[in-house]
Structure formats: C-alpha cells, structure tokens
C-alpha cells in the first residue's frame, strides 16, 4: 500500500512542468502541436491560469492569461502553472477544459456533444460523451508521453531547459532549433 501511495504522490510537480511545456510548445508553434503518433491539433491557454510556488500563488484571469507579462514574471520568480484552462481543437471537434497538473484531472470540460439528455436515447447520449472524452484523453496522454520522453532524457537539462529559460525571459524560442532537438530526443524513445 505504501508503495502505491508513494507511486501516486511521487513527483507531482511533473504535472505542473507538463502544463509549462504545453504552454511553451503552444507559444513556440503558434498553437499548432503534433503529438507523436497522432494527428496535428491546436492547443492554447484561455481565460484562466494559476501559477504557484509553495503557498505563493498568481491567479491570472483574462482572455489570454498566458500572454500577459505577469505570467512570464511568475515563471521567473520560480512559480509553475498549477492549473490552466485550455482550448483544444482536433479537426472538427473542439474541447475546453481546466487541467490540473497535480492530479492530471479535468474540470468543467466542454465537449462538442450533439446529443442532449432530453429527447435523445440515454444510452446514445452516454456513448457519445464517453467517445469524446476518450478522444480528448488519448490526445492528452500522447502529449504527456512526449513530455515524459523529453523530461526523462539526458537532454532535458542541457538542451530543453535553455529554451524554457529563454521563453520565461520573453525571448522568442528558435522553433526550428527546438524542433530538431525535440525530434532527436523523441526518436531515442522509439528506439528503446
């Protein structure tokens, strides 16, 4: 049991770093992300983001909180995003959700469901919702897998963190150079 609790509790900060990486990728690639093994998607932060360092919290609420100078300032103070409201577009399907780094939990998920509880067969309503949530979860999982491959690679501190520091300092990342590094590090996972 202790082993299980330890597995659950260990490195919760990795979820916050995952949000940071999604934010960095979204800004670097102008919202156009390509999770390994999946189709291209568009992902961006909208309306709400909370950054924390221990008990010190910055809650940013605006149309584009990630673009505000306060967001990068919080990063430079050592804060990491604890949660962020994302919008994700996957072809014709558009989702919005508040994503929590510590639990990888999702709140207030808006799914592009067409069927409604009233008037439609309850089973059909359930299957449609379940299918859409599974579609969203598969994308998040693919992105998390890419993040982990980078995070646990030898190149994270030496090659990726310098890009993140430039990003925190409001300097535009060289997307071509970053993409090269990312592709090289990701290819090592597939060769494992």
């Amino acid at each position: 049991m202790t082993d299980l609790v330890e597995r659950i509790e260990r490195n919760r900060f990795a979820g916050r770093e995952f949000i940071l990486w999604l934010w960095f990728e979204s800004e670097t690639f102008e919202t156009n992300l390509r999770p390994s093994g999946g189709s291209p998607i568009a992902l961006w932060i909208e309306t709400r983001m909370t950054l924390t360092l221990e008990k010190d919290e910055s809650v940013l609420k605006s149309a584009a909180p990630a673009a505000s100078p306060e967001a990068k300032e919080a990063l430079r103070q050592g804060k990491l995003p604890k949660e962020a409201k994302f919008r994700l577009s996957n072809g014709e399907h558009e989702f919005a959700f508040l994503f929590k780094g510590d639990t990888l939990g999702m709140s207030s998920v808006s799914v592009p469901a067409e069927l409604k509880d009233k008037g439609d067969e309850v089973y059909e309503v359930f299957y449609e919702r379940a299918r859409l949530l599974e579609e969203l979860e598969a994308i998040i999982e693919a992105l998390y897998n890419d993040f982990l491959t980078l995070r646990l690679s030898d190149g994270w501190n030496k090659e990726i963190v310098p890009f993140l520091k430039r990003f925190a300092n409001e300097k535009r990342a060289d997307d071509g150079a970053y993409l090269q590094v990312k592709k090289r590090l990701l290819s090592k996972k597939s060769k494992r």
Binding site: I8, E9, N11, R12, G15, D102, T103, E141, Y144, L148
Partner: peptide, 16 residues
C-alpha cells in the same frame, strides 16, 4: 483496487 491518476501513475503506464 482503484488507482488514482497522477503524474506518477501516468509515468508508470508510459513504460519506465
């Protein structure tokens, strides 16, 4: 048993 999702359990599924 139900194991809650967390960055750690997701890392385990990723295949450490």
């Amino acid at each position: 048993r139900l194991v809650p999702e967390s960055p750690g359990t997701a890392a385990e599924r990723w295949g450490l």
